[in-house]
Design a protein around this nucleic acid. Structure first.
Lengths: 234, 234
DNA sequence: CCAAAAGTGTTCAAGATACACCCATGT
DNA sequence: ACATGGGTGTATCTTGAACACTTTTGG
Protein backbone atom coordinates (compact mmCIF):
# COMPACT_ATOMS: atom_id res chain seq x y z
CA UNK A 1 0.00 0.00 0.00
CA UNK A 2 2.11 2.87 -1.25
CA UNK A 3 2.01 6.34 0.26
CA UNK A 4 0.18 5.37 3.38
CA UNK A 5 0.93 5.98 6.99
CA UNK A 6 2.52 2.98 8.65
CA UNK A 7 2.12 3.83 12.35
CA UNK A 8 -0.86 3.14 14.59
CA UNK A 9 -3.26 6.07 14.57
CA UNK A 10 -5.01 7.88 17.37
CA UNK A 11 -8.79 7.84 17.02
CA UNK A 12 -10.33 11.19 16.15
CA UNK A 13 -13.54 12.63 17.54
CA UNK A 14 -15.36 15.94 17.69
CA UNK A 15 -17.08 17.34 20.79
CA UNK A 16 -19.32 20.37 20.90
CA UNK A 17 -19.98 22.82 23.69
CA UNK A 18 -23.42 24.25 22.97
CA UNK A 19 -24.20 27.50 24.77
CA UNK A 20 -27.58 29.12 25.12
CA UNK A 21 -28.89 32.00 27.16
CA UNK A 22 -31.80 31.48 29.46
CA UNK A 23 -33.93 34.60 29.84
CA UNK A 24 -36.76 32.72 31.52
CA UNK A 25 -36.29 33.78 35.11
CA UNK A 26 -36.67 37.52 34.42
CA UNK A 27 -33.84 38.61 36.58
CA UNK A 28 -31.85 35.44 36.80
CA UNK A 29 -30.59 35.32 33.24
CA UNK A 30 -27.89 32.70 32.94
CA UNK A 31 -25.67 30.88 30.51
CA UNK A 32 -26.57 27.27 29.78
CA UNK A 33 -24.75 24.31 28.25
CA UNK A 34 -26.22 21.26 26.63
CA UNK A 35 -25.09 17.88 27.96
CA UNK A 36 -25.86 14.31 26.98
CA UNK A 37 -26.35 11.47 29.38
CA UNK A 38 -24.23 8.57 28.21
CA UNK A 39 -25.83 5.21 27.75
CA UNK A 40 -22.62 3.32 27.01
CA UNK A 41 -19.44 2.66 28.93
CA UNK A 42 -17.19 4.31 29.86
CA UNK A 43 -18.88 6.85 32.16
CA UNK A 44 -22.20 5.15 31.54
CA UNK A 45 -24.97 7.27 33.01
CA UNK A 46 -22.60 10.23 33.36
CA UNK A 47 -22.95 13.55 31.57
CA UNK A 48 -20.81 14.46 28.59
CA UNK A 49 -20.59 16.92 25.74
CA UNK A 50 -22.34 15.89 22.53
CA UNK A 51 -19.84 14.47 20.05
CA UNK A 52 -18.52 11.37 18.32
CA UNK A 53 -16.09 9.88 15.87
CA UNK A 54 -15.01 11.66 12.71
CA UNK A 55 -15.64 9.63 9.54
CA UNK A 56 -13.02 9.49 6.85
CA UNK A 57 -15.26 11.09 4.26
CA UNK A 58 -16.45 14.16 6.15
CA UNK A 59 -14.73 17.35 7.21
CA UNK A 60 -14.37 18.23 10.88
CA UNK A 61 -17.08 20.88 10.62
CA UNK A 62 -19.38 18.37 8.97
CA UNK A 63 -18.70 15.84 11.69
CA UNK A 64 -19.53 18.41 14.36
CA UNK A 65 -22.78 19.41 12.65
CA UNK A 66 -23.77 15.80 12.09
CA UNK A 67 -23.18 14.80 15.70
CA UNK A 68 -25.00 17.87 16.92
CA UNK A 69 -28.01 17.04 14.78
CA UNK A 70 -27.98 13.36 15.72
CA UNK A 71 -27.58 13.86 19.43
CA UNK A 72 -29.44 17.07 20.14
CA UNK A 73 -31.59 17.82 17.09
CA UNK A 74 -29.96 21.23 16.72
CA UNK A 75 -29.09 22.40 13.21
CA UNK A 76 -28.20 25.55 11.34
CA UNK A 77 -26.57 27.14 14.34
CA UNK A 78 -23.42 29.17 14.87
CA UNK A 79 -20.49 26.77 15.17
CA UNK A 80 -16.79 27.46 15.51
CA UNK A 81 -13.74 25.32 16.12
CA UNK A 82 -12.34 25.78 19.61
CA UNK A 83 -9.25 23.71 20.31
CA UNK A 84 -7.93 20.18 19.83
CA UNK A 85 -7.34 18.12 22.93
CA UNK A 86 -4.84 15.30 22.82
CA UNK A 87 -3.73 14.40 26.34
CA UNK A 88 -2.74 10.76 26.68
CA UNK A 89 -5.18 9.49 29.28
CA UNK A 90 -8.24 11.50 28.28
CA UNK A 91 -10.15 8.43 27.11
CA UNK A 92 -9.65 5.30 29.23
CA UNK A 93 -10.22 2.96 26.28
CA UNK A 94 -7.50 4.03 23.91
CA UNK A 95 -5.80 7.06 22.47
CA UNK A 96 -8.45 9.50 21.32
CA UNK A 97 -7.80 13.02 20.09
CA UNK A 98 -10.81 15.32 20.00
CA UNK A 99 -11.40 18.45 18.00
CA UNK A 100 -13.64 20.58 20.19
CA UNK A 101 -16.17 23.07 18.83
CA UNK A 102 -18.45 25.53 20.47
CA UNK A 103 -21.89 26.51 19.28
CA UNK A 104 -24.30 29.31 20.13
CA UNK A 105 -28.06 28.92 19.96
CA UNK A 106 -31.03 31.08 20.67
CA UNK A 107 -33.51 28.91 22.48
CA UNK A 108 -36.61 30.39 20.94
CA UNK A 109 -36.94 28.85 17.51
CA UNK A 110 -34.98 25.67 18.13
CA UNK A 111 -36.76 22.72 19.55
CA UNK A 112 -34.26 20.42 21.14
CA UNK A 113 -36.84 17.78 21.91
CA UNK A 114 -37.76 17.47 18.23
CA UNK A 115 -34.73 15.29 17.76
CA UNK A 116 -35.09 11.54 17.35
CA UNK A 117 -32.18 10.83 19.60
CA UNK A 118 -32.38 13.63 22.13
CA UNK A 119 -34.03 11.77 24.96
CA UNK A 120 -30.86 12.13 26.99
CA UNK A 121 -30.05 15.74 26.24
CA UNK A 122 -30.52 18.47 28.83
CA UNK A 123 -29.50 22.03 29.56
CA UNK A 124 -27.41 22.92 32.60
CA UNK A 125 -26.38 26.26 33.97
CA UNK A 126 -22.63 26.74 33.57
CA UNK A 127 -22.50 27.77 37.19
CA UNK A 128 -24.11 24.53 38.35
CA UNK A 129 -22.74 21.61 36.39
CA UNK A 130 -22.75 17.90 37.18
CA UNK A 131 -19.43 16.00 37.07
CA UNK A 132 -18.46 15.48 33.45
CA UNK A 133 -17.05 12.47 31.61
CA UNK A 134 -13.56 12.38 30.07
CA UNK A 135 -11.79 15.77 30.09
CA UNK A 136 -15.02 17.52 29.21
CA UNK A 137 -14.87 19.84 32.19
CA UNK A 138 -11.64 21.22 30.79
CA UNK A 139 -13.10 21.48 27.29
CA UNK A 140 -16.12 23.32 28.61
CA UNK A 141 -13.97 25.68 30.61
CA UNK A 142 -11.87 26.47 27.56
CA UNK A 143 -15.03 27.19 25.59
CA UNK A 144 -16.36 29.44 28.31
CA UNK A 145 -13.15 31.46 28.36
CA UNK A 146 -13.19 31.70 24.59
CA UNK A 147 -16.75 32.98 24.62
CA UNK A 148 -15.87 35.59 27.22
CA UNK A 149 -12.97 36.93 25.23
CA UNK A 150 -14.50 36.64 21.78
CA UNK A 151 -17.65 38.47 22.72
CA UNK A 152 -15.52 41.55 23.38
CA UNK A 153 -14.42 42.07 19.84
CA UNK A 154 -17.00 40.29 17.73
CA UNK A 155 -20.76 40.49 17.97
CA UNK A 156 -21.25 36.74 18.34
CA UNK A 157 -23.43 37.43 21.35
CA UNK A 158 -26.31 38.08 18.99
CA UNK A 159 -26.35 34.39 18.12
CA UNK A 160 -27.61 33.75 21.62
CA UNK A 161 -30.56 36.10 21.29
CA UNK A 162 -33.89 35.65 19.56
CA UNK A 163 -34.20 37.53 16.27
CA UNK A 164 -36.00 40.40 18.00
CA UNK A 165 -34.69 41.39 21.38
CA UNK A 166 -34.74 44.28 23.79
CA UNK A 167 -31.66 46.30 24.66
CA UNK A 168 -32.06 45.12 28.21
CA UNK A 169 -31.75 41.50 27.09
CA UNK A 170 -28.63 42.35 25.15
CA UNK A 171 -27.20 44.05 28.20
CA UNK A 172 -28.03 41.13 30.47
CA UNK A 173 -26.37 38.80 28.00
CA UNK A 174 -23.16 40.78 28.16
CA UNK A 175 -23.38 41.03 31.92
CA UNK A 176 -23.72 37.27 32.24
CA UNK A 177 -20.89 36.49 29.86
CA UNK A 178 -18.50 39.14 31.14
CA UNK A 179 -19.61 38.55 34.71
CA UNK A 180 -19.85 42.20 35.69
CA UNK A 181 -22.53 44.85 35.80
CA UNK A 182 -22.78 47.40 33.04
CA UNK A 183 -24.23 50.88 33.28
CA UNK A 184 -27.58 50.98 31.51
CA UNK A 185 -27.22 54.45 29.98
CA UNK A 186 -23.65 53.95 28.82
CA UNK A 187 -24.44 50.54 27.41
CA UNK A 188 -27.36 51.80 25.34
CA UNK A 189 -25.41 54.83 24.20
CA UNK A 190 -22.57 52.67 22.96
CA UNK A 191 -24.66 50.00 21.26
CA UNK A 192 -26.83 52.56 19.51
CA UNK A 193 -23.81 54.64 18.49
CA UNK A 194 -22.31 51.61 16.75
CA UNK A 195 -25.46 51.37 14.67
CA UNK A 196 -25.37 47.60 14.52
CA UNK A 197 -28.88 47.14 15.86
CA UNK A 198 -32.02 48.43 14.19
CA UNK A 199 -35.36 49.27 15.71
CA UNK A 200 -38.12 47.03 14.44
CA UNK A 201 -40.92 49.39 15.44
CA UNK A 202 -42.41 46.64 17.54
CA UNK A 203 -42.53 46.33 21.29
CA UNK A 204 -42.59 43.53 23.84
CA UNK A 205 -45.89 41.81 24.57
CA UNK A 206 -47.49 40.66 27.79
CA UNK A 207 -45.22 42.31 30.30
CA UNK A 208 -46.46 43.79 33.52
CA UNK A 209 -44.77 47.14 33.00
CA UNK A 210 -43.84 49.53 30.23
CA UNK A 211 -43.08 47.44 27.15
CA UNK A 212 -39.57 47.65 25.73
CA UNK A 213 -38.75 48.30 22.08
CA UNK A 214 -37.62 45.33 20.03
CA UNK A 215 -34.46 45.54 17.97
CA UNK A 216 -32.70 43.26 15.57
CA UNK A 217 -29.04 42.84 14.70
CA UNK A 218 -28.07 44.67 11.51
CA UNK A 219 -25.56 42.28 9.97
CA UNK A 220 -25.18 44.24 6.72
CA UNK A 221 -24.07 47.30 8.62
CA UNK A 222 -21.82 45.28 10.89
CA UNK A 223 -20.08 43.64 7.93
CA UNK A 224 -19.49 47.01 6.33
CA UNK A 225 -17.96 48.32 9.54
CA UNK A 226 -15.76 45.24 9.93
CA UNK A 227 -14.29 45.71 6.48
CA UNK A 228 -13.23 49.21 7.37
CA UNK A 229 -11.25 47.83 10.28
CA UNK A 230 -13.79 48.36 12.99
CA UNK A 231 -13.49 47.05 16.51
CA UNK A 232 -16.50 45.93 18.47
CA UNK A 233 -15.92 46.60 22.17
CA UNK A 234 -18.37 46.72 25.01
CA UNK B 1 -11.34 -6.00 20.53
CA UNK B 2 -13.71 -4.47 23.06
CA UNK B 3 -14.25 -0.73 23.42
CA UNK B 4 -12.50 0.19 20.23
CA UNK B 5 -13.50 2.32 17.36
CA UNK B 6 -14.73 0.31 14.42
CA UNK B 7 -14.56 2.86 11.59
CA UNK B 8 -11.56 3.70 9.42
CA UNK B 9 -9.58 6.55 10.91
CA UNK B 10 -8.19 9.67 9.38
CA UNK B 11 -4.42 9.97 9.79
CA UNK B 12 -3.30 12.67 12.20
CA UNK B 13 -0.36 15.01 11.75
CA UNK B 14 1.01 18.21 13.26
CA UNK B 15 2.44 21.11 11.25
CA UNK B 16 4.24 24.10 12.66
CA UNK B 17 4.49 27.64 11.37
CA UNK B 18 7.74 28.99 12.81
CA UNK B 19 8.02 32.78 12.78
CA UNK B 20 11.16 34.80 13.35
CA UNK B 21 12.02 38.45 12.98
CA UNK B 22 14.91 39.46 10.80
CA UNK B 23 16.57 42.63 12.04
CA UNK B 24 19.58 42.22 9.76
CA UNK B 25 18.85 44.78 7.08
CA UNK B 26 18.70 47.76 9.45
CA UNK B 27 15.70 49.32 7.90
CA UNK B 28 14.18 46.35 6.17
CA UNK B 29 13.07 44.42 9.22
CA UNK B 30 10.77 41.63 8.17
CA UNK B 31 8.88 38.62 9.37
CA UNK B 32 10.26 35.25 8.32
CA UNK B 33 8.89 31.71 8.23
CA UNK B 34 10.79 28.47 8.25
CA UNK B 35 10.07 26.01 5.45
CA UNK B 36 11.35 22.53 4.66
CA UNK B 37 12.11 21.25 1.22
CA UNK B 38 10.42 17.89 0.82
CA UNK B 39 12.47 14.95 -0.32
CA UNK B 40 9.57 12.53 -0.67
CA UNK B 41 6.44 12.45 -2.78
CA UNK B 42 3.96 14.03 -2.90
CA UNK B 43 5.23 17.55 -3.64
CA UNK B 44 8.76 16.22 -3.79
CA UNK B 45 11.19 19.12 -4.01
CA UNK B 46 8.44 21.55 -3.00
CA UNK B 47 8.41 23.65 0.14
CA UNK B 48 6.27 22.76 3.13
CA UNK B 49 5.81 23.52 6.79
CA UNK B 50 7.78 21.35 9.20
CA UNK B 51 5.58 18.61 10.64
CA UNK B 52 4.74 14.94 10.63
CA UNK B 53 2.57 12.17 12.01
CA UNK B 54 1.39 12.07 15.60
CA UNK B 55 2.38 8.91 17.45
CA UNK B 56 -0.10 7.14 19.65
CA UNK B 57 1.99 7.62 22.76
CA UNK B 58 2.70 11.35 22.60
CA UNK B 59 0.54 14.41 23.13
CA UNK B 60 -0.06 16.86 20.31
CA UNK B 61 2.28 19.41 21.87
CA UNK B 62 4.96 16.74 22.23
CA UNK B 63 4.53 15.74 18.60
CA UNK B 64 4.92 19.34 17.49
CA UNK B 65 8.07 19.82 19.58
CA UNK B 66 9.55 16.55 18.41
CA UNK B 67 8.98 17.31 14.73
CA UNK B 68 10.35 20.80 15.18
CA UNK B 69 13.49 19.46 16.77
CA UNK B 70 13.93 16.70 14.21
CA UNK B 71 13.34 18.82 11.15
CA UNK B 72 14.74 22.19 12.12
CA UNK B 73 16.87 21.69 15.23
CA UNK B 74 14.82 24.27 17.11
CA UNK B 75 13.92 23.53 20.71
CA UNK B 76 12.66 25.28 23.82
CA UNK B 77 10.74 27.85 21.88
CA UNK B 78 7.34 29.46 22.24
CA UNK B 79 4.73 27.12 20.76
CA UNK B 80 0.98 27.40 20.66
CA UNK B 81 -1.79 25.44 19.00
CA UNK B 82 -3.35 27.30 16.10
CA UNK B 83 -6.16 25.42 14.40
CA UNK B 84 -6.99 21.94 13.12
CA UNK B 85 -7.41 21.53 9.38
CA UNK B 86 -9.51 18.68 8.07
CA UNK B 87 -10.59 19.42 4.50
CA UNK B 88 -11.10 16.28 2.46
CA UNK B 89 -8.60 16.72 -0.34
CA UNK B 90 -5.81 18.39 1.59
CA UNK B 91 -3.47 15.42 1.23
CA UNK B 92 -3.62 13.61 -2.14
CA UNK B 93 -2.68 10.25 -0.63
CA UNK B 94 -5.42 9.73 1.89
CA UNK B 95 -7.47 11.45 4.53
CA UNK B 96 -5.12 13.40 6.79
CA UNK B 97 -6.18 15.81 9.51
CA UNK B 98 -3.50 18.15 10.78
CA UNK B 99 -3.27 20.02 14.03
CA UNK B 100 -1.40 23.21 13.18
CA UNK B 101 0.82 25.06 15.63
CA UNK B 102 2.71 28.29 15.44
CA UNK B 103 6.03 29.02 17.06
CA UNK B 104 8.02 32.18 17.73
CA UNK B 105 11.81 32.26 17.82
CA UNK B 106 14.42 34.88 18.34
CA UNK B 107 17.14 34.17 15.83
CA UNK B 108 20.06 35.14 18.02
CA UNK B 109 20.67 32.22 20.30
CA UNK B 110 19.14 29.48 18.17
CA UNK B 111 21.27 27.82 15.58
CA UNK B 112 19.06 26.22 13.00
CA UNK B 113 21.94 24.68 11.14
CA UNK B 114 23.03 22.74 14.24
CA UNK B 115 20.31 20.22 13.54
CA UNK B 116 21.17 16.82 12.14
CA UNK B 117 18.32 16.84 9.73
CA UNK B 118 18.05 20.51 8.82
CA UNK B 119 19.84 20.42 5.51
CA UNK B 120 16.59 21.29 3.78
CA UNK B 121 15.33 23.98 6.14
CA UNK B 122 15.38 27.64 5.16
CA UNK B 123 13.87 30.97 6.17
CA UNK B 124 11.58 32.88 3.84
CA UNK B 125 10.09 36.31 4.17
CA UNK B 126 6.32 36.05 4.62
CA UNK B 127 5.94 38.65 1.90
CA UNK B 128 7.91 36.57 -0.59
CA UNK B 129 7.00 32.91 -0.31
CA UNK B 130 7.47 30.04 -2.75
CA UNK B 131 4.42 27.92 -3.66
CA UNK B 132 3.65 25.63 -0.73
CA UNK B 133 2.72 21.95 -0.60
CA UNK B 134 -0.69 20.70 0.58
CA UNK B 135 -2.88 23.43 2.10
CA UNK B 136 0.11 24.96 3.85
CA UNK B 137 -0.43 28.37 2.30
CA UNK B 138 -3.77 28.49 4.07
CA UNK B 139 -2.26 27.26 7.33
CA UNK B 140 0.45 29.88 7.13
CA UNK B 141 -2.03 32.60 6.41
CA UNK B 142 -4.13 31.57 9.40
CA UNK B 143 -1.04 31.68 11.59
CA UNK B 144 -0.11 35.11 10.28
CA UNK B 145 -3.57 36.46 11.08
CA UNK B 146 -3.43 34.91 14.52
CA UNK B 147 -0.08 36.49 15.22
CA UNK B 148 -1.39 39.88 14.12
CA UNK B 149 -4.39 39.73 16.39
CA UNK B 150 -2.73 38.05 19.36
CA UNK B 151 0.12 40.51 19.50
CA UNK B 152 -2.43 43.22 20.29
CA UNK B 153 -3.50 41.87 23.61
CA UNK B 154 -0.66 39.65 24.73
CA UNK B 155 3.04 40.44 24.77
CA UNK B 156 4.02 37.43 22.71
CA UNK B 157 6.01 39.72 20.45
CA UNK B 158 8.83 39.57 22.97
CA UNK B 159 9.41 35.94 21.99
CA UNK B 160 10.65 37.21 18.64
CA UNK B 161 13.26 39.49 20.16
CA UNK B 162 16.66 38.74 21.62
CA UNK B 163 16.80 38.86 25.42
CA UNK B 164 18.12 42.41 25.33
CA UNK B 165 16.61 44.72 22.77
CA UNK B 166 16.18 48.38 21.98
CA UNK B 167 12.84 50.11 22.03
CA UNK B 168 13.31 50.81 18.37
CA UNK B 169 13.55 47.09 17.63
CA UNK B 170 10.39 46.50 19.62
CA UNK B 171 8.66 49.22 17.66
CA UNK B 172 9.82 47.83 14.32
CA UNK B 173 8.56 44.43 15.34
CA UNK B 174 5.11 45.79 16.00
CA UNK B 175 5.19 47.79 12.81
CA UNK B 176 6.02 44.71 10.78
CA UNK B 177 3.40 42.53 12.41
CA UNK B 178 0.64 45.13 12.40
CA UNK B 179 1.72 46.43 9.02
CA UNK B 180 1.44 50.10 9.87
CA UNK B 181 3.72 52.83 11.12
CA UNK B 182 3.68 53.80 14.76
CA UNK B 183 4.60 57.14 16.26
CA UNK B 184 7.95 56.86 18.03
CA UNK B 185 7.13 59.11 20.98
CA UNK B 186 3.69 57.64 21.58
CA UNK B 187 5.00 54.10 21.28
CA UNK B 188 7.75 54.65 23.84
CA UNK B 189 5.42 56.47 26.17
CA UNK B 190 2.95 53.60 26.11
CA UNK B 191 5.45 50.78 26.46
CA UNK B 192 7.27 52.48 29.31
CA UNK B 193 4.03 53.41 31.05
CA UNK B 194 3.03 49.74 31.09
CA UNK B 195 6.24 49.01 32.95
CA UNK B 196 6.68 45.64 31.34
CA UNK B 197 10.19 46.33 30.09
CA UNK B 198 13.17 47.09 32.30
CA UNK B 199 16.33 49.01 31.47
CA UNK B 200 19.41 46.83 31.68
CA UNK B 201 21.81 49.75 32.02
CA UNK B 202 23.64 48.53 28.94
CA UNK B 203 23.70 50.04 25.48
CA UNK B 204 24.08 48.81 21.92
CA UNK B 205 27.59 48.11 20.62
CA UNK B 206 29.24 48.81 17.28
CA UNK B 207 26.68 51.11 15.76
CA UNK B 208 27.65 54.10 13.67
CA UNK B 209 25.48 56.54 15.58
CA UNK B 210 24.27 57.20 19.08
CA UNK B 211 23.91 53.84 20.83
CA UNK B 212 20.43 52.90 22.07
CA UNK B 213 19.65 51.64 25.55
CA UNK B 214 18.99 47.92 25.92
CA UNK B 215 15.88 46.71 27.70
CA UNK B 216 14.54 43.36 28.68
CA UNK B 217 11.01 42.08 29.10
CA UNK B 218 9.85 42.04 32.71
CA UNK B 219 7.76 38.88 32.86
CA UNK B 220 7.21 39.02 36.62
CA UNK B 221 5.61 42.41 36.36
CA UNK B 222 3.62 41.40 33.30
CA UNK B 223 2.23 38.34 35.09
CA UNK B 224 1.21 40.44 38.07
CA UNK B 225 -0.59 42.89 35.79
CA UNK B 226 -2.36 40.08 33.93
CA UNK B 227 -3.75 38.68 37.17
CA UNK B 228 -5.32 42.01 37.98
CA UNK B 229 -7.17 41.89 34.69
CA UNK B 230 -4.85 44.01 32.64
CA UNK B 231 -5.08 44.47 28.92
CA UNK B 232 -1.99 44.81 26.76
CA UNK B 233 -2.74 47.04 23.78
CA UNK B 234 -0.40 48.80 21.41
C1' DC C 1 31.66 68.38 10.81
C1' DC C 2 28.44 65.36 8.93
C1' DA C 3 25.32 61.44 8.85
C1' DA C 4 22.39 58.55 11.37
C1' DA C 5 19.55 57.21 14.73
C1' DA C 6 18.29 58.08 19.92
C1' DG C 7 15.72 60.45 22.92
C1' DT C 8 12.19 63.70 24.73
C1' DG C 9 6.69 67.02 26.04
C1' DT C 10 2.71 69.38 25.09
C1' DT C 11 -1.67 70.26 23.12
C1' DC C 12 -6.09 68.75 21.55
C1' DA C 13 -9.95 65.68 20.56
C1' DA C 14 -12.48 61.71 21.44
C1' DG C 15 -14.15 58.25 24.14
C1' DA C 16 -15.15 56.23 28.78
C1' DT C 17 -17.19 56.69 33.18
C1' DA C 18 -20.19 58.19 36.80
C1' DC C 19 -24.50 59.35 38.08
C1' DA C 20 -30.61 60.11 39.15
C1' DC C 21 -34.95 60.95 37.63
C1' DC C 22 -39.34 60.71 34.89
C1' DC C 23 -42.26 57.54 31.89
C1' DA C 24 -45.41 53.90 30.43
C1' DT C 25 -47.99 49.89 31.45
C1' DG C 26 -50.48 46.15 33.96
C1' DT C 27 -52.53 44.82 38.22
C1' DA D 1 -52.22 54.23 43.17
C1' DC D 2 -48.43 51.42 43.10
C1' DA D 3 -44.99 48.32 41.45
C1' DT D 4 -41.99 47.24 37.76
C1' DG D 5 -38.85 47.92 34.54
C1' DG D 6 -38.06 51.34 30.25
C1' DG D 7 -35.95 55.20 28.78
C1' DT D 8 -33.02 59.49 28.78
C1' DG D 9 -28.47 63.74 29.36
C1' DT D 10 -24.59 66.02 31.33
C1' DA D 11 -20.17 66.83 33.48
C1' DT D 12 -15.70 65.01 34.25
C1' DC D 13 -11.79 62.21 33.54
C1' DT D 14 -8.84 59.40 30.86
C1' DT D 15 -6.72 57.99 26.87
C1' DG D 16 -5.12 58.30 22.16
C1' DA D 17 -3.25 61.16 18.33
C1' DA D 18 -0.59 64.59 16.26
C1' DC D 19 3.55 66.76 15.99
C1' DA D 20 9.64 68.74 15.68
C1' DC D 21 13.71 69.49 17.66
C1' DT D 22 18.09 68.44 20.35
C1' DT D 23 21.56 64.88 21.62
C1' DT D 24 25.02 61.42 21.00
C1' DT D 25 28.25 58.75 18.50
C1' DG D 26 31.23 56.95 14.73
C1' DG D 27 33.27 57.82 10.47
Amino acid sequence: MPHTYQFARPALTVDIVVFAMDFAGRDETDLQVMLIQRDLAPYRGGWALPGGFVRTQETLDDAARRELQEETGLRDIYLEQLYTFGALGRDPRERVVTVAYYALVNLTGHDVRASTDARNAAWFSVSDLPPLAFDHAQVLDTAHQRLRSKVRYQPIGFELLPERFTLRQLQRLYEVILDRELDKRNFRKKVLAMEIVKETGEIEKDVAHRAARLYRFDKRRYDRLMKKGFNFEI
